[in-house]
Simulated assay, not measured.
Amino acid sequence: MTWRVGAVVTVLAAALVTAGVAGPAAAATSYPSWGDVQAAKANAAATQSQVDRINGLLDGLQAASNAAADLAVKRAGEYGLAELSLQKATAKAADLRTRADAAKAEAATLRAQSGRLAEQLGRAGGSDYSLRLLLTSDDSQSADTLLYQLGAVAKLGADSSKLFAAADEQKNLADSLSAQAASAQRVRDQLAAKAKTALDSAKAAEVAAEAELASQQEHATTLYAQLASLKNTAASVEQAYAQGVAKAAADAQASNGGGGAGAGWVSAPTGMTVNPAAAQAYASSQLPAYGWGSDQMSCLVRLWNKESGWRANAVNPSSDAYGIAQALPPSKMSSAGPDWLTNADTQINWGLTYIEGRYGSPCGAWAHEVSHNWY
């Protein structure tokens, strides 16, 4: 399940507070000892009371673990959104700076061209041509030549003026773009700080989720064994029964439990390798187990392409839906396995079971997605 970046064990207490999640259940909960269990077996009433207590503790462990994991997904989505905003702001600031530099360079080129024309105009002596034209003889050829030369000088002056004006316009544009680039850079720096804060919060929430899961796994093993002793069953039977009840409850949750609108997801900062192609290959291999033919795969590909791009770390920041199947709330996938946060196969197993129970097939789910924009 780890999303950890670097060592975090030493900051666990601070991380739990930062993430807004209570510490591991073990820190505040009293668990029954084996002596309590043996004493309770002395009479039926005490046995039932201890059974109820253990079931309550198991429910509490699962609830705490789910709540911490859901919060971790939420914080990851907040970070993903902050990072996306930062990337856009960075690109905008860079583009403005590039355009400002280009405008500045263009202004310098135009100004240089204008200067060269002005220099040529000075050497040509435009006023001399005008005077010579007034004093010339009636020689029409000489007059035509002087008129042509005067026109050329006039055009030279006009071109120089146009270039100077264009250079001035480019300079003003460069100044404006430079100011915009500086402003965009300040926004970018603010967003960078926000993204850093969001990432720290996401890491802290991940640590809290991991701690809750560890607590659940540590204590659940003993509690299931104690429950089995009280009920004269096997611990594996009790655990399988509890998992079945949890799965049924998860499948009966919110009607929009499979996914949200499907657009606008971001990537959570997980440490896992995200491989959409491998995820699709695994999903295809599981279709026969549900009695579906290969024709259903095209519908499933379109469905989860829209929902998540087949990315196991996809988070919808607006709804907190998570994973390849975009489960909502994310912790519903715990019914398929405790590693749902980072295991694409576990997410797919949950998603296929959800589709089977609610729509009958991937094509049924895709039809609903097309008509309602969720499934």
Rank of each mutant, 00 (worst) to 15 (best):
V5S: 07
G6Q: 13
G6F: 13
A7K: 05
V8H: 14
V9M: 02
A19G: 14
S30D: 13
P32E: 03
S33L: 05
S33K: 10
D36S: 06
A40R: 08
A40Q: 03
N43I: 01
Q48N: 07
G60N: 12
Q62F: 05
A63Y: 01
N66E: 12
A69H: 02
A69S: 11
E78S: 09
E78C: 06
Y79I: 00
K88Q: 13
A94Q: 12
A94N: 13
D95H: 10
R97C: 05
T98W: 10
A102C: 07
A103D: 12
A105L: 06
R111L: 05
A112K: 08
A118H: 06
E119S: 03
L121G: 04
R123N: 10
A124Q: 13
S127A: 12
S127W: 14
T136S: 10
A143L: 01
D144E: 08
Y148S: 01
Q149M: 09
L150R: 05
G151H: 06
G157T: 14
K162S: 05
A166M: 00
A166Y: 00
D168I: 03
K171S: 14
N172D: 15
A174K: 00
A179C: 08
Q180K: 14
A181R: 08
R188L: 00
R188D: 07
R188T: 02
Q190L: 01
Q190Y: 09
S201Y: 08
A205Q: 06
V207K: 00
A211N: 11
E212N: 13
A214T: 11
E218S: 15
H219L: 12
H219M: 14
T221G: 14
T222I: 14
L227A: 04
T233W: 03
A235K: 04
E238R: 01
A240H: 09
Y241G: 13
G244K: 07
V245G: 11
K247C: 13
Q253C: 10
Q253R: 14
Q253M: 13
N256R: 15
N256V: 09
N256H: 15
N256C: 13
G258V: 06
A261L: 08
G262N: 02
A263E: 13
A263D: 14
A268H: 04
V274S: 09
A277S: 12
A279F: 01
Q280N: 03
Q280V: 02
Y282D: 05
A283S: 08
Q296K: 01
M297P: 12
C299V: 04
L300H: 11
L300W: 09
K306I: 12
W310C: 01
R311E: 04
S318I: 05
S319V: 11
S319G: 08
D320V: 06
G323P: 10
A327N: 05
K332E: 10
M333I: 10
S334L: 12
G337Q: 08
P338H: 02
Q347D: 08
N349P: 06
W350R: 03
Y354P: 02
P362H: 03
A365Y: 05
H368Y: 15
E369N: 06
V370W: 06
